[in-house]
Design a protein around this nucleic acid. Sequence first.
DNA 1: AACTGTAATTTTGAATTCATAATTTAGTCA
DNA 2: TGACTAAATTATGAATTCAAAATTACAGTT
Lengths: 227, 227
Amino acid sequence: MTENSAIRTIPRKSLHEELVDRLQMLIITGELQPGTKVPEKDLCAQFGVSRTPMREALKVVASDGLVRLEQNRGAWVSPLTISEVEEVFPILGVLEALSGELACQNITDDEIAAVRALHEQMISSYEARDLEAYFSVNQKIHRAILKAARNDTLTTSCQALSLRMQRARYLANMSDERWAAAVQEHEKIMEYLALRDGKQLARTLLAHMRGKQASVTKWLQSQGGQV
Amino acid sequence: MTENSAIRTIPRKSLHEELVDRLQMLIITGELQPGTKVPEKDLCAQFGVSRTPMREALKVVASDGLVRLEQNRGAWVSPLTISEVEEVFPILGVLEALSGELACQNITDDEIAAVRALHEQMISSYEARDLEAYFSVNQKIHRAILKAARNDTLTTSCQALSLRMQRARYLANMSDERWAAAVQEHEKIMEYLALRDGKQLARTLLAHMRGKQASVTKWLQSQGGQV
DNA sequence: AACTGTAATTTTGAATTCATAATTTAGTCA
DNA sequence: TGACTAAATTATGAATTCAAAATTACAGTT
């Protein structure tokens, strides 16, 4: 292993995988506006790639539902609608509930300690009213529980569905009441996880997801029901 | 609507979508052997298409997990393993349970009647020990319940995950006891659906899925744990 | 000015081409 | 004979090219 070997590091992902990630991010952050056409040519120029890998990536992103392909008319950014939220959150609810149950069966003491550390960090972010940090740590907690569930397929499924809701989380703010309630729910989540009480944890995660759904729906409604 | 309009029907799917379906079928039926390389060139010749749409389709199929892409080494048919079965069935379980709950909230009397007709048909197939017909009608029942749940995302998610298990259902036979038990479970499913008892239907569908998992796992074990 | 039909332009879907990486084959030497 | 190396072959990933479809621009008509 000389230093030279690092100079020409093999790209960790293939071009099209990299592009899938980039496209997802562009859509989640709203840089690609919902309902608009995906500017294929421009994106190719922007990323310095030809149309072939870009179009491969678009096919994959379309199969996840973030864009819609129309025959001979190109790719369009799917808007996030209330009805989509009402479809996806209940699914995410039962999946997270399952992840909670499985996590209680498989999580180690060390992992519980790690989640507790994240939990404390999240509380601090809440007390400092640092939404950015709060969201980030929040995600880490959910990911840690998913990881403890020892089910990669479940992780993949959750992440694919979450992705479609991420746009709302990126753009929407929570109300003060909702934020407080969410923190309360997380206290319970932490408690039941530490007790390894799968049934109760599942119940709480499901309720937590219902709360999120209501919050996102409310915000979406204030936005005219879309995006 | 003249007869002429049918002569030049617009292809209902784009080339790559069609190829996605074909590839999935080739893998499910075992024509493409698990663990082997996907013969890209041969398939292109077989279907009379160039590599571009075939490779687009492979990217999509890979994102569903039926094939694995290896950098510079092409696409490989993913084997169906016990650990994958143990990951996917619990997920399908909670998703079908959810579909049952939602179906009870939304299903019409006509739809219940239609499911009952399918149910009777399935019983006949069972009594005639016609496994082929039984599987076919069975699938229709599950699809009808999913449809009554009025959640397209749930339908898509279930179908994507089912696809990966379909190989086992295609190749595996059920034991007599398992088949009898499955039919019993379906009696209950029909009963609770007719009563629109979401909670009980969910419970039954979950148990039904657990039975399927055990059956498939047992068969997979008899096959050396794979395929 | 609004509408219709047609030509020019652009975009899309798919085939082809090309450079590079992986694999196979052939050849060399112990 | 068998292991190793180098050349040849093949397959892969990505860019380019090409035909067909869609969109735009525009002229002629009312």
